[in-house]
Amino acid sequence: MQLTSYLALSAILFSIGLYGVLTKRNAVIVLFCIELMLNAANLNFVAFSKFGLFPGLTGQVFTLFTITIAAAEAAVGIAILIALYRNVQSAEADRYDSMKG
């Protein structure tokens, strides 16, 4: 029954992250929430590599990759945000609507 509690935690984290991505107006918080969702996925990987049907190291190695990529993603994301802030003078996500048709 260990696996279920891990998966539950992961699901709660993912949902909180998704909620934040969808509702928060501050773009920085949106980025943080994306990190939260990534970490929920990581937790799944680790949990399955330990308690899954075919236990092994692959899941943990994938997690390491994901953390690295998340760091890179955060760096690029923050950089884009700063560039956007310079253009729009705002960190509010709903002000970034230049995609409007």
Binding site: V21, L22, V30, A93, Y96, D97, M99, K100, G101
Partner: peptide, 17 residues
């Protein structure tokens, strides 16, 4: 349709969801 195409990434994400 035009209401949906408001250019806000969050709305798009919500609809995909």
């Amino acid at each position: 349709g035009s209401r949906l195409q408001n250019g806000q990434a969050q709305t798009y994400v919500l609809i995909s969801l």
